[in-house]
């Protein structure tokens, strides 16, 4: 996706077991922080209205 122009950090992958609650919290915190730092997504935003 990065190759096609999506900024690095905008997309994350993670493998978290239902038992790994602390890991889930850590990952969510980290992802939100990265995305906040990147600012609003101006690229992948639809401008025209579709029927």
């Amino acid at each position: 996706m990065e190759h096609m122009g999506v900024e690095p950090g905008r997309l994350s992958f993670s493998w978290i077991s239902s038992a790994e609650s602390t890991k889930f919290v850590d990952v969510v915190k980290e992802v939100t922080a990265t995305v906040k730092a990147l600012g609003p997504n101006i690229n992948f935003k639809k401008t025209a209205k579709v029927a």
């Binding site: 990065e2 190759h3 096609m4 122009g5 999506v6 900024e7």
Partner: peptide
């Protein structure tokens, strides 16, 4: 071609594919 695109910045890549 792939290497040429890989060398671009994220925004350049976005514009290239646009």
């Amino acid at each position: 071609d792939v290497l040429r695109i890989e060398a671009m910045t994220a925004q350049e890549k976005w514009e290239y594919f646009k």
